[in-house]
């Protein structure tokens, strides 16, 4: 066992983990933050995407120990403490960008990174192209694309 400390959604956390423990296991099992999902075991689906120091990463392919001292944001950390949703969360609801909800946390975290990289005026081609690391089996992406476009615009306000 090794000790690891990081900041998750603004809160300092410490845990004892086996060196092989993945970040996603640490979040889900140690911290009980179960919004970050595991959809595959080959780093293909993106259901586990979180932010490490502001940049999207797949928590299934990151060791917990690699995140010593890092600032992690998960889906649970997006809404304001008072409960006001992040504009990207709101956009997913408004545009029916989710059905079963399983890929959704990863989609939203990935969408925010697309905005970080490309700004608030996103075209369909950019969104589809850069959503390459996320798989949704329910929506056919149509409404996810619309949600990200609208969410990105709303974030500029």
């Amino acid at each position: 066992m090794a000790s690891v400390s990081m900041t998750v959604n603004g809160k300092a956390v410490t845990g004892d983990v086996e060196p092989r423990t993945l970040l996603v296991q640490f979040l889900r099992e140690n911290l009980r933050l179960t919004g970050t999902h595991v959809g595959c075991d080959t780093s293909q689906c993106g259901a586990c995407i979180i932010h490490i120091d502001g940049i999207a990463a797949k928590a299934c392919t990151t060791l917990a120990l690699q995140c010593e001292g890092a600032k992690i944001t998960t889906i649970e950390g997006l809404a304001e403490p008072g409960g006001k949703l992040h504009p990207m969360q709101e956009a997913f609801r408004e545009h029916h960008g989710l059905q079963c909800g399983y890929c959704t946390p990863g989609m939203i975290m990935s969408a925010l990174d697309i905005v970080r990289r490309n700004g608030n005026n996103l075209d369909e081609h950019t969104i589809r192209d850069q959503l390459d690391g996320n798989i949704c089996r329910c929506t056919g992406y149509h409404n996810i694309v619309k949600a990200i476009e609208a969410g990105a615009k709303a974030m500029a306000k």
């Binding site: 179960t34 595991v38 909800g101």
Partner: peptide, 19 residues
């Protein structure tokens, strides 16, 4: 109508079996 179930899913509060 916008979906009732969405709030818990977009905030990471869905309760799937593994959760």
């Amino acid at each position: 109508v916008r979906r009732k179930e969405d709030f818990r899913f977009i905030t990471g509060q869905g309760q799937y079996t593994d959760d």
